[in-house]
Simulated assay, not measured.
Amino acid sequence: MLLDKSEMIHVDSRTPKYLQVVNLILEDIEKGELMVGDRIPSINETSFDLLLSRDTVEKAYNELRDRGIITSVRGKGFYVASTNMASKSKVLLLFNKLSSYKKLIYYSIVESLGDQATVDLQIHHYNKRLFEDFLERYIGKYNYYVLAPHFFDQEGHPDAAYELIKRIPKDKLLIIDRAVKGHENEFPGIYQDFSKDIFEALESGISHLKKYERLILVFPKGGMYPEEIIDGFKKFCFFHDFKNLVIDGMDDEEPLENGECYIVLSESDLVSVVKKSREQSLCLGKNIGLISYNDTPLKEILAEGITTVSTDFVHMGKSIAEQILGSEDRIPIKNPFRLTIRKSL
C-alpha cells in the first residue's frame, strides 16, 4: 500500500503534500489493492513511511474521511469505508449576487472541476446576517467553501466581515473576486485589485485618452460597486493631469459634452450614453469617448464596438478550480485585468 512510496511524494509539486497522500490512497483503491474493511496504516506509520509530518498525514486522512472514503475506529485505527470513486469533493460557492459575470465564473468552475467535485451555490446578497446563517447551516458539510466577500453594513459602507469569515477552516476556504480588506494575504484564492486594475488599465490606453478634455467616471450610488474603483480613477487622473469628475449616474436631461470620455459601470448608464450620442449626433471615439466596465460579447458589436476594462472571469473560475484540485498553489492570486480598445475610444 503506502510502504516504499516515499519517492512518490514530490516536494516541488504544485499539488500540496496532503493531497498527494490522498491521491496515493485513492490510486490503491482504484487498483483494487484496498477494499472496503481493509485497514490502512496509522497516521504515525504513514508519516514515517512517507517522510512527512504527522500534521500533513492527519490532514490527508481528514480529507478522505470528509469524502466518506475512510472511517476511524477508536483504539483500532483507520479503515476503508467506501471504494466508490464517485465520492467527490463537495464545494459550496457563496456569491454576493448572480450577475451575468458571476454566471461566467460559476460555469467556469463547474466545467473545470468536471466530475471530480459536486458544486452547490448560495447567494448572500452582500448581507452579513444571511452569510452567518449559511455558515451555521453548512460549516462541516463541504470540503471547500468559495467565498466572494462583498459585504456592506447597514449604512451601505463596505464591511470586511473578517470575524465571520474566520469561522470557515482556513484549509477549506478560498476567496474569489475580491480580497478581504486588511487581510489580503491571509486567504488563498483569486481576486481583483480594483484600484490598481483601473489605474493600470487606463494607463495602458493613455495615448487614446489624451485627445479628451475631461474624464468622467459614472459610479452609481447604492449599486454595490467597489469604491476602490474611484480611488484608482482619481489617482490616474492626478498622476497624468486629467480633468475629471465622478457622478452617480447619467441624467436624462443632461446633454453629453463634446471632448469628454465617459467610464461607465452599469449597463443602464452604458445604454444612456450610446443613446444620447446618437440623439446629439456625437461620434463615439471622435467627439466623445466611452469605456464600459466588464466585457461581454455584446459590447464587441454594440455601436460598432465598445471599449472595455475587464477582468477575465473565465480565468478566475478556472484558477479556483485548479486550487481546489491541487494543481495550482493555494495562495492569493491577482486575476488578469485589461483594457480592450474598440471604436468607442
Rank of each mutant, 00 (worst) to 15 (best):
F236I: 13
S53C: 15
E163I: 10
R167L: 02
K170F: 06
V146R: 04
E253C: 09
E184M: 03
D159F: 05
E203R: 10
C237N: 10
H208G: 11
Q116S: 14
F239E: 15
C237I: 14
T71K: 15
K334E: 14
G289V: 11
Q192G: 06
M250P: 11
E304M: 13
I29W: 01
I69K: 01
V218R: 03
S99P: 05
F219E: 07
I333G: 00
M8L: 14
Y142W: 04
L121M: 10
Y106V: 13
Y106K: 13
Y79A: 08
D171S: 12
R67Q: 13
R137Q: 15
K128Q: 14
I43M: 12
L298S: 11
K76E: 15
E203H: 07
R167T: 00
E300S: 07
E7M: 00
Q116E: 14
K210W: 01
M85G: 01
E267I: 06
T83S: 11
K166W: 02
M1V: 10
L290G: 07
F78R: 09
K103D: 07
K59P: 09
L290N: 06
R14Y: 12
K211P: 10
F313Y: 09
L98Y: 08
T71R: 13
I306Y: 06
L284M: 07
K211H: 12
K181T: 10
D4C: 07
N44Q: 08
M8N: 14
L147F: 01
